[in-house]
Design a protein around this nucleic acid. Structure first.
Length: 717
RNA sequence: GCGCGGUUAGCUCAGUUGGUAGAGCAACCCGUUUACACCGGGAAGGUCGUAGGUUCGAGUCCUACACCGCGCACCA
């Protein structure tokens, strides 16, 4: 027997060795599996893409959880003999990465405008490359059985070609348009963002009530009120029944008399405040809609740096926060201040990546029309194309309650603003010359054309990910073989950003679904239920530190057992330590079996006695049960059952029983045969969950023409 | 405001057509049996959030409510 078994299981030494073994085998690549004869060329396929980590730093426990779940699926599929592809890549994450680099430069006292577009992009790419290398090394260390030969990056040349192709097609179909609309401007990031990139924060603000002619109006933002000249009330509000729509009155306002027009619209909530408000169409989504409806004038009050424009007269050039109190003072001195509510709580829209407070602005931007009927797709709109496959069950979402969330999002969906005023990302493939606009995959020939300076929302390229990684728009073998993919595994917070956009792009560009199943995992939290963030310091668990301490298999088990789809996971170091013992238990039980079956003829196993036959059947039944559960993605249940069987049936009962039989030489051959059969079978079914220790033990099992465990067959039938 | 999820043993959580409550960890007792002390054996521990309802039977289905968490929404 191998001397290594004389010492307790050492994950550190083993894992390094096993990683090398797998890497050299090439078995992560389905083509090599076919080449080497471990997978049939005509086998069923299984494909999945890795949610590409952002190149903004390093892996955290959330990544580790995703990698674990996905690797279990992948290893299970591979062992079933399927042509299995799990495709890796990274995401350039436009705004996230750019703002990270900006912060780093800021610390050195450098502004991106000092560097200029080209030099700044060099710096970002350098950072991205560094992050990419770190992340990939960590991912490999996790034992993720990804086919690195097919690695992709959302901003590499092939994906850029896919992006330009997709843009051009959508442009030609009239789905992409440029328009002056109210958008979410982030003054801090100096770019527009989409509705989904807004994070709402509850904050306590002062809520002011002012006299506005004969009315009283309330606002939390007096600094936007300079240009207000429409006063709106509900048509059925009896308090204001004497006022008629369109009626003009002159009111004393911040900078003198203003002519105001009465507007009556049912959008007004009679219960709220005084039931009367003035509107600022340039800086409020709702006011904008009202202004569009009645063709009202719109005027910009605040510039893109968050400073007041000349309309504010003596306040012109002031930052809105500095101006607010001063404006209130002025109104007060004019006798127009009625009251201030100090305890008003409202939702502030902030930018997801920069934290900047969103200032709605009317701007010219690029949009994707989600309601336009598309002739080539059965006259359905993008909204309908997104809705249908989920509604019809072609795409199954797990846990299924997220389907409701998904439908609800689509119902409220507005056109998707895709242009960003940042430098890092896919440049919009549109060129201008005077009033001419040219959109194509390649730049126009001739002088005087200037490309649109904006880049695309990072989720535009992410939306193409299931097929751009397989070679689209080329008609590649990979695309034919592996699309639609089988599963999309990710955290549930990406349901709108990513999952929906992939369905949109795939349905529209390919006319097929991007994946058959969506498996959502939850958020990994600390033992006391806090979000794992860097600010937590020591309480935040770093997956690689844990692996060094307890082993990869231990971390995997701790992440899988008791973790059902969609639910948050409280990761506890004690649990991980506990599963480290499991790896050692496997190790020692294997040692016992190998020691006691040395003289066993493994090619012609002796028959089982009655008792052992029962145990043999018990394991076979278990396999039948867990195979079904694996197919239903119930990994937590399977991991727990396998753990329990190995420890409390195989080790505690079967091994203990065999000791007696072997010692007394009473049916000892049957006992040995059972030990051997059970161990080899258990190693296989445990492999997706604890791949390292099982592969290492497998390497010591005396079987003729043995393959690596990673490509052994799952023992059903 | 609307919607979703959670509420089961001290802790973390399973519990798939309704049929006598489960695991891991912790705590308790016993055991140094040559695979393993990263061990074995044993015992203990739950009115399954509350109140109703359906049913022969409900943690599981229905209706309210409470608390925690989350998502969405145009309350100026």
């Amino acid at each position: 027997m191998d001397e290594k078994f004389l010492k307790p299981y050492d994950p550190k030494v083993t894992e390094e060795k096993i990683l090398k073994l797998w890497d050299e085998s090439g078995f992560f690549n389905p083509d090599i599996c076919v080449e080497k004869g471990v997978t049939s060329a005509h086998a069923e396929t299984f494909s999945m893409i890795l949610p590409p980590p952002n190149v903004t730093g390093s892996l955290h426990t959330g990544h580790a959880l995703g990698l674990t779940v996905e690797d279990i699926m992948t290893r299970y599929a591979r062992m079933q003999g399927k042509k299995t592809l799990w495709l890796p890549g990274t995401d350039h994450a436009a705004i996230a990465t750019q703002s990270k680099v900006e912060k780093i430069l800021e610390k050195k006292g450098i502004k991106k405008s000092d560097l200029g577009r080209e030099e700044f992009l060099k710096q970002v790419e350098q950072f991205a490359q560094y992050s990419h290398d770190t992340i990939n090394n960590q991912t490999k260390r996790m034992g993720a059985s990804l086919d690195w030969s097919r690695e992709a990056y959302t901003l590499d040349a092939k994906r850029n070609f896919a992006v330009r192709t997709a843009f051009k097609k959508m442009y030609d179909d009239g789905l992409i348009y440029r328009g002056h609309k109210i958008v979410n401007w982030d003054p801090k990031g100096q770019t527009v963002i989409s509705d989904d990139e807004i994070v709402y924060e509850e904050r306590k603000n002062k809520f002011y009530t002012f006299k506005y002619g004969p009315f009283e109006i309330a606002t939390a933002r007096p600094e936007t009120k300079f240009g207000d000249k429409y006063v709106v009330m509900h048509p059925e509000d009896v308090r204001y029944k004497d006022w008629i729509h369109g009626q003009k009155i002159t009111v004393e306002w911040i900078n003198g008399p203003t002519e105001a027009t009465v507007i009556k619209d049912p959008m007004i909530d009679m219960e709220f405040g005084t039931g009367v408000m003035t509107i600022t169409p340039w800086h409020s989504h709702e006011d904008f809609q009202l202004a569009e409806k009645y063709k009202l004038e719109k005027e910009q009050i605040i510039d893109k740096y968050g400073k007041l424009l000349p309309i504010a007269q003596e306040f012109s050039g002031m930052k809105i926060n500095d101006a607010r109190e001063k404006i209130v003072e002025k109104l007060k001195s004019k006798g127009l201040l009625v009251s201030i509510d100090e305890n008003y709580v409202n939702r502030m829209a902030t930018a997801e990546r920069t934290g900047g407070i969103i200032e709605p602005q009317i701007m010219e931007q690029w949009f994707i029309d989600v309601n336009k009927k598309i002739e080539a797709r059965g006259n359905k709109s993008l909204k309908e194309l997104m809705l249908e496959p989920v509604r019809d069950g072609k795409i199954k979402i797990l846990p299924d309650h997220f389907e409701k969330v998904y439908f609800n999002w689509i119902e409220n969906l507005r056109d998707w603003c895709i242009s960003r005023q940042i430098w890092f990302g896919h440049r919009i493939p549109v060129w201008y010359k005077g009033n001419e606009v040219y959109c194509d995959i390649e730049a126009p020939v001739g002088d005087g054309w200037e490309q649109d300076p904006d880049t695309l929302d990072t989720w535009f390229s992410s939306g193409l990910w299931t097929f751009s990684t397989l070679g689209w728009p080329e008609k590649t073998e990979d695309l034919k073989n592996f699309h639609p993919t089988d599963v999309l595994e990710t955290m549930h917070d990406l349901i709108f950003f990513w999952v929906a956009r992939m369905i949109l792009m795939s349905q529209y560009l390919l006319g097929e679904i991007p994946f058959k199943n969506v498996y959502f995992h939850g958020m990994v939290k600390t033992a006391d239920g806090k979000k794992m963030s860097k600010s937590l310091g020591e309480k935040a668990i770093d997956p690689l530190t844990i692996i060094d301490k307890y082993g990869n298999d231990a971390l995997r088990m701790a992440m899988i057992v008791g973790n059902t789809p969609g639910n948050d996971l409280k990761l506890n170091e004690n649990d991980i330590r506990g599963y480290g013992k499991f790896a050692n238990k496997i190790w020692n039980a294997s040692r016992f079996v190998l020691e006691n079956t040395k003289d066993l003829d493994t090619e012609n196993l002796p028959a089982f006695d009655e008792e052992d036959a029962l145990s043999d059947k018990e394991l076979k039944d278990l396999i039948k049960e867990i195979s079904k559960e694996m197919d239903e993605f119930r990994f937590s249940l399977v991991a727990e059952k396998v753990y329990h069987y190995f420890w409390h049936t195989f080790a505690d009962v079967i091994i203990e029983r065999s000791k007696k039989k072997i010692l007394e030489n009473n049916n000892s051959e049957s006992a040995k045969a059972l030990l051997f059969t059970q161990l080899t079978t258990l190693l296989k079914i445990m492999h997706p969950f604890v791949p390292f220790v099982t592969e290492e033990v497998w390497s010591s099992i005396p079987i003729k023409d043995k393959k690596l465990l990673i490509v052994e067959r799952w023992p059903l039938n």
